[in-house]
Design a protein around this nucleic acid. Sequence first.
DNA 1: CTGTTAGCGCCTTCAG
DNA 2: CTGAAGGCGCTAACAG
Lengths: 333, 333
Amino acid sequence: MATIYEVSKLAGVSLATVSRVMNNNANVSDATRKKVTLAMEELGYRPNSIAQSLASNCSNSAGLLVSELKGPFYGPMMSGIENTLRKQGKHVIITAGHSDAEREQQGIEFLISRNCDALILHVEAVSDEYLIKLSKGKTPFVLLNRHIPELADRCIILDNIKGGYLATKYILESGHKNIAYISGPLWKKDAQERLNGHKQALAEHDIEFDENSLYEGDFIEDSGYEGFTALYKKNPAITALVCANDEMATGAMVSAREHGIELPAQLSIIGYDNVFFTRHVYPPLSTINYPIDEMGKVAAQWVLSHVYQKSVQPIQTLFQPELVIRQSVVNIT
Amino acid sequence: MATIYEVSKLAGVSLATVSRVMNNNANVSDATRKKVTLAMEELGYRPNSIAQSLASNCSNSAGLLVSELKGPFYGPMMSGIENTLRKQGKHVIITAGHSDAEREQQGIEFLISRNCDALILHVEAVSDEYLIKLSKGKTPFVLLNRHIPELADRCIILDNIKGGYLATKYILESGHKNIAYISGPLWKKDAQERLNGHKQALAEHDIEFDENSLYEGDFIEDSGYEGFTALYKKNPAITALVCANDEMATGAMVSAREHGIELPAQLSIIGYDNVFFTRHVYPPLSTINYPIDEMGKVAAQWVLSHVYQKSVQPIQTLFQPELVIRQSVVNIT
DNA sequence: CTGTTAGCGCCTTCAG
DNA sequence: CTGAAGGCGCTAACAG
């Protein structure tokens, strides 16, 4: 790899001049600029961004931490972020936290140690205190899907309580009274909030929440399968199931079919997230829309304006969930 | 951020010694080691991996280029790679090429300029020549899903011809004779190969391939929708459709239903890739398994052994596709 | 076992 | 408009 030094020699100028044409910064005469450009081409020169980063303390890249690299939820999120950042010539360094406090911390530290100019974090396990401490550090960050009062202006979130409420309300208005619920891991705030929304809707319709009709899953398909199996055993009379995400809903569907239950006629199911494949499962799954790609874009824009343009514009931090009606819920009134 | 210098001062030792305990390399007495460790903790010291990378010419991270960050195909691939690398303390820097030659090149150059120790590339648009030239450079790389004879030992591929063959063979053996095909973009080699496999199976059964029953899609769902719409218009008598990937197959299903076609009774469909949601569409989609997660792991292992352990072990480069039978294909003999 | 001394490749004042 | 010089934080011989 050619270095700036070789370029400068070939062009017959100083290091500083080469540096200047690279960052087409200061005034450089057209003549010398041309000389340098030619020399760079001749040598196939590529700037070493590591060295740039060390010297300038700016890496032109943002760090992104997601819980998983796979799964239908994170793909659109990463993609939305990468696209908007890339358009401005910024890069993204992605790493996974696996919903584990230690791995999330490691990931964050890795990104910081890589000189990321800013961080976009979808963290679940790490504590509020840790993040507040982190916010005192020099690397700015936004939080996706997590609300911390002290950091409210950089928390881009969905109103999960409302989402949970909307889902169950729709089920109730379709005449169901015998309703089971498969939640996410309840140590996760969003899982908790969705469940709270559910309870709220129930209360509004004077239906008492029954612990026996709750199964705590882990947002993964299999737990939906196991959840329905368990729930059905306890109470075969349920006519509707609300799931805290779409993947568990599809898992539940598999179990329901194995029990000889006809969908949606004998069992209504609703999911959450509106992940892309929900249109294609059978029956097409009604769900709650989570505009994660858009939220990712907002996060990216925050980075762009806040870090690179130094113009601190307020951003939309609260997004609204929406009911998406397809065919998995049946009216039994 | 504390630097190595401050640590050395606090511990009362030299820079070199601090560096040594960090890389627990050379012999350091337990006493001084303890002093240094304490000093590091007290200062909350974190090594700056950018500086390490610049000085040691080793970044402990591999670059990964995929076509898209979203989509059911790349998720498992990224995840498989990240997991196996992470276990050895290596990190992954991911970027997207969007199946565009220029963006793929940019991505590769970014990864190289970031001092990645090795690259794992899923590139589609960039030329063979470019990659061959790249192979002369100092950053080693493996190729995923691309075969270049000159670089055969670092190409981890699936036998796509065979996969295409298996899919159509299964359709033919189910008694279908009036078969349409939705391909991927034919400038992509894998799309071409899958189609060739299709033709080969047809030939074996003495069925002539008809250009009119081919629609060139782009591996994205919508093109499956449009593809079937166009194909059906030309020939409403088709009884089977083979698609070059699962996403187009699900798109085709939507169109078929809109035409009042009952699935699978009136139209058999087979996909390709065995992406995770194929089990959940209706009818559950028969397809060809593409062990992409495993192939990703092999790529990661290549990096681990080849670059970090300097033990050049040969790896499995050719993987076999397998027919996955579900319920979207019906026997009409 | 430990300290000294050069760099890694680039940016950034500061003079000129 | 251009060059010289110092430094970003760390590693890696080489001495001692």
